[in-house]
Design a binder for these strands. Sequence first.
DNA 1: TATCAATTTTGATATTTATCATATGGTATA
DNA 2: TATACCATATGATAAATATCAAAATTGATA
Lengths: 231, 231
Amino acid sequence: MKLIRDINDCKTCAYKSYLFSNLQPEDLSRVNISRIEKEFLPGEHIVRQGDKIASFMYLRKGLLKLSREMEDGKNQIISIARPLDFIGLLSVFSESYYHFSITAIENSTLCFIDLSLMKEIIRKDGIFALKLLENMSNVNEMIMSSWLSINEKNLRGRIAYILLFFCNEIYHTEEYSLPVSRKEIAELIHMRTENVIRILSEFRKDKIIEIEGKLIRVLEKDKLQQIADFG
Amino acid sequence: MKLIRDINDCKTCAYKSYLFSNLQPEDLSRVNISRIEKEFLPGEHIVRQGDKIASFMYLRKGLLKLSREMEDGKNQIISIARPLDFIGLLSVFSESYYHFSITAIENSTLCFIDLSLMKEIIRKDGIFALKLLENMSNVNEMIMSSWLSINEKNLRGRIAYILLFFCNEIYHTEEYSLPVSRKEIAELIHMRTENVIRILSEFRKDKIIEIEGKLIRVLEKDKLQQIADFG
DNA sequence: TATCAATTTTGATATTTATCATATGGTATA
DNA sequence: TATACCATATGATAAATATCAAAATTGATA
């Protein structure tokens, strides 16, 4: 983790518009003063399950995973989060402690804003609060939808789904480097590591994808879509 | 569905305190004037997937199910909702249309408050908005936690989990009438109807529970808990 | 009451998925 | 350099779960 100062002023931040656009100038300026900018490397924890929630977080750049460690020691990945996903909204306003860990899976830059300041602004500024409510709704709808989709698919369908997810939602290209291990894919779509590997190999043999370590090249997107939909 | 007027004034509503307690008197009075009270019988739809969201809803009494119909026609039950679960919060503030259906599974009473009025009050009253944010966080944390729990269990564990859920969270007694069919249990914990029935029969044979149609009597709660935890 | 449809039930069987074993290559570490 | 530890990979097998079929029961309805 590295403290940085990439953005000089919230006023010029490209992501401002999605959340802070309607904030009163004086409030935005207070946010700007209080905020801390941090850069994380892949694998670095941003928060750990059980940590006290003290900041409102804001992913500016990069990719994160949210995961929960279960009583039996097994891990489940709740979601992959991009900028604008506002994953920090998940439980900031209700819980004192995080019920999940957040880990960078790519070089990631986050802004940390003191939580009590945020709450103060919310209390004062209902329009901003409504914006937060909308964003929180969206985050939840997104996570739930993907869970429901994954649940109804068999293993081949899940692998196809997640390959297309990285393709369409994250990298917007047919060739990309997986930001997660096979084991993490397994934790994300509820299957065993061996089966993740096995089915990826199947897809390779069927010439639907090419694999070089973490590098994935989607050759037959339509076929992958079919497998995701009906497989 | 029946229009009723069980409560004369929001001021005297027992559930007011959980959400509307800090509302300004004049706002509470506007809510009181605008609100519509409705009673639903088991099986009646309150909203349907695809309906336009026009109201903020508030479960006063009863039990609901949230479910989503998937593209392939299969149903998944997202959650069971009690009073105070504020299930209406799930996507009211972001989406124009419901992404799920809500159905009564017991006699249920709901208050409907015009959504534009609610938004107006939120914009004006940040403290109320913060309360909503907290509640929304709680709803989501609850739903996610139960999903994660269910996901890591085998079928016997899931059945034990759901029996204990009704026992501990809903009815607070060891003897209760299931508010859902075997098929709906299957849709809720991601398994097949036949296996729900089969495992319930197993538990009956092992004298862990007694079954008379919808009536469940939990005989060995500890054993059920063990199966839920480790089975 | 008679009839139809849906739900519950059980058994047999097929399919899917997990588990176990083993091997290989890479990477960090002493 | 040697060692240990992961991640990836593949095969064989076991276990879990779904599917198919058929019957009994219940509930709704004409």
